[in-house]
Every structure is written in structure tokens, then in C-alpha cells.
Design a protein around this nucleic acid. Structure first.
Length: 111
DNA sequence: TCGCTGACCCAGG
DNA sequence: CCCTGGGCCAGCG
């Protein structure tokens, strides 16, 4: 078990679980809510290390441009992510973008 | 221990 | 609107 690192991942995963169905969050947002503002890459690492079948809605995490971030290797999961989002009622435009103004999850800062 | 990579983001041109 | 460069930090060889 790695110290610190896994703790950081769990913190980010915990935030990701709070994303409601039909809404999306950005990597930068997850990082900020996890206590690491300005470090969106850490959220990307956490998503990459999400245990399969953990129940974490990793597909609801997209980039700040409102698009699905292409993963390394161009695996089929990128297409699966879009399918999952569409099944939740989220629509994509011709350029493959999502209307963040309508679907972005408005999270509240923990006190 | 050092160096490179990466499911990112923002400012400029 | 699109493309480019710089910056941030953790993980791996």
C-alpha cells in the first residue's frame, strides 16, 4: 500500500462519486474539490487508476473544453464513455462537445 | 536519485 | 474559433 498517493486518489474518487446522474464535472473541478486546486492532472491520474467495478462514475468526468479527453492508446473506452453519458440524457453536438452551461455539475465547497 | 510522460488548464497569437 | 507554449504534480524506469 502506497502512502499519500492512494489517499489522494481516494479523496478524488470520493468527490467523483458525488457527481449526480445526468451531470458532468471537469478534471480541474475534481482536483479543486479534492483539495488540490490547479492540479487537474492529478484527477486524470486518479481516473486512470479507478478500480473496475468500483461504482465510480468516471465517465462523468470530462475536460474543461466540454469534450471527452482522448486516452492513451485510443482504447474503445473513450467511445463507451460517450455512450454512457448519452444513456443518462446528455447530448453531444456535431463537434462532439457537451453544453457545460447546461450539464456541468454545480458542486458546493465543503465546510 | 534524475528525467520523462501524462484521462489537464490557461494565456497569447 | 483553432493552434502553441508554459506550468503544475505524481508515477515509473
Amino acid at each position: 500500500m502506497v502512502q499519500g498517493g492512494s489517499d489522494l486518489y481516494e479523496r478524488i474518487w470520493k468527490v467523483a462519486r458525488r457527481i449526480p446522474r445526468g451531470k458532468v464535472a471537469t478534471y480541474g473541478m475534481l482536483a479543486a474539490l479534492a483539495g488540490r486546486p490547479g492540479q487537474p492532472r492529478l484527477a486524470g491520474y486518479a481516473m486512470r487508476n479507478v478500480p473496475d467495478g468500483s461504482g465510480i462514475p468516471w465517465h462523468r468526468v470530462i475536460n474543461a473544453r466540454g469534450e471527452i479527453s482522448p486516452r492513451a492508446g485510443g482504447s474503445i473506452e473513450s467511445g463507451m464513455q460517450r455512450a454512457l453519458l448519452e444513456s443518462e440524457g446528455i447530448r453531444f453536438d456535431e463537434t462532439g462537445r457537451i453544453d457545460l452551461n447546461a450539464y456541468l455539475w454545480k458542486a458546493r465547497i465543503r465546510r
